[in-house]
């Protein structure tokens, strides 16, 4: 099976510190990591390859340092990597990101399956997967927590929704976005790391995509961020200790009654 994994580099929110005064995240000096859910997408791709043979190709759009993320993916077991990096692509929203990625995928041509994370921890939109699928006009599914069966012509998957689990069949080629529950990603091996260091990455530039300038990057993005504000959730916290638990619970129950919850 030929599998493409969409992988994004994001700031490591695990190391995030809060600015006590403004209540915002301090983003400076954060390390860049592979979007955690994309590791699950990659892991699933590697497992499918182990079962059926074929190749795993990772594709990422981002600044030049995204190269590190792609090498890490190779160290985990990916066969090859495409890096889409160009100033002209900078500032892309989900539409422009999906447009660029789908054009890059058309270049790679032969694939049976595309795997992506359900969402990225920075943008948190979860839109790129479905948008890429729509632009490539292939069937897709989201919130996939298990690939139940691989048949000759497609996949049976389970997706997790608000009230339970849905089972769907998707014919190849198709795209899935996965949730964390699907697997436990492996660690890179020593051998993999050696291979990754030597690997040739395939570099793609904006001009390789056959897109008009008006379809790329910030310029090509239908949406614009026009304002950023910092909400200060000022909650008037009332703190009790279990020494006066009686009083605390009395007040709490009063509040719940007032809110008509009991």
């Amino acid at each position: 099976m030929q599998i493409i994994v969409l992988l994004k580099q994001v700031p490591d929110t695990d190391e995030v510190k809060m600015d006590e005064k403004t209540g915002t995240m301090i983003r400076e000096g954060l390390q860049a990591i592979i979007n955690p859910l994309d590791l699950h997408a990659l892991e699933e791709a590697l497992r499918l390859k182990e079962k059926t043979g074929g190749e795993v190709i990772v594709v990422s759009m981002g600044p030049p340092q995204t190269e590190e993320a792609l090498r890490e993916a190779i160290a985990m077991g990916a066969d090859s990597a495409f890096l889409l990096s160009d100033k002209k692509l900078a500032g892309a929203d989900t539409w422009a990101t999906s447009k660029a990625l789908s054009k890059a995928i058309e270049k790679i041509k032969d694939f049976d399956l595309i795997l992506a994370g359900e969402k990225a921890t920075d943008g948190e939109t979860g839109q790129v997967g479905p948008e890429v699928a729509a632009m490539l006009d292939i069937p897709f599914s989201t919130y996939v927590n298990r690939i139940i069966e691989i048949t000759n012509d497609g996949l049976i998957v389970s997706r997790v929704v608000e009230e339970g689990y849905e089972e769907q069949f998707l014919p190849f080629p198709c795209l899935l976005t996965v949730v964390k529950d699907i697997n436990e990603p492996r660690m890179p091996t020593l051998k993999g790391k050696v291979k990754a260091r030597r690997a040739e990455l395939n570099l793609l530039k904006a001009n390789d995509l056959g897109l008009a300038e008006s379809e790329m990057g910030l310029k090509g993005s239908p949406t614009r961020v026009v304002k950023i504000s910092y909400p200060k959730v000022s909650r008037n916290t009332r703190i009790y200790t279990s020494k006066n638990l009686d009083e605390a619970l009395e007040e709490l129950i009063g509040k719940l009654k007032k809110m008509a919850l009991i």
Binding site: T94, W95, E124, Q127, G129, A134, Y143, R159, V160, T223
Partner: peptide, 20 residues
């Protein structure tokens, strides 16, 4: 879960932006 699934595909087909 359903809105977040079909709306991005709808936006892509209509060639417009979508805010999540």
């Amino acid at each position: 879960s359903s809105g977040r699934t079909f709306f991005p595909a709808v936006a892509a087909k209509l060639n417009t932006g979508l805010t999540a």
